[in-house]
Amino acid sequence: MTDAAVPLTVNGHAHSVRDVPGPERLLDTLRWRLGLKGTKEGCRSGACGACVVLVDGRATLSCLTLTHDVPGAQITTIEVGPEDAAVARVRAAFAQEGALQCGYCTPGFVLTLAGLLHERGRRAAREELLEAAGGNLCRCTGYAAIVRAVERLATEDR
């Protein structure tokens, strides 16, 4: 029931989140209750991908996920440390290619691509990575550097 605390493991740390109203989104729980502001609110309607986090290893829109609907889930956000090798790899590729300007959309891109790497056992084809990234909007890079980061992920030897 809504009154119960919601257990969540976020970036390896166990939390029991209390007093969460039924309509609250995972996005808001992460940002406002747990203080993890790396996950961004964009359109709040599933169209921009800025809020993507991993839920049990899978890229998921946190703006369309009710916190009460994922009790016990393992959540990974952009704040995760190097223990998540996929996230670390994507972050490094973005840094090496300078694949950001304002950075607002970057956490969503990184988690979307890291989710695909998790699904595919760390190797994913360029086309599949680009299709996944198609769910994320960037309004300032023009995407060229992001595509280069994707190509780096698809071709680097792992």
Binding site: G49, L61, A132, G135
Partner: peptide, 9 residues
Amino acid sequence: VGSVALRQR
């Protein structure tokens, strides 16, 4: 449909 992250829900 939507995107990878939408289809997860």
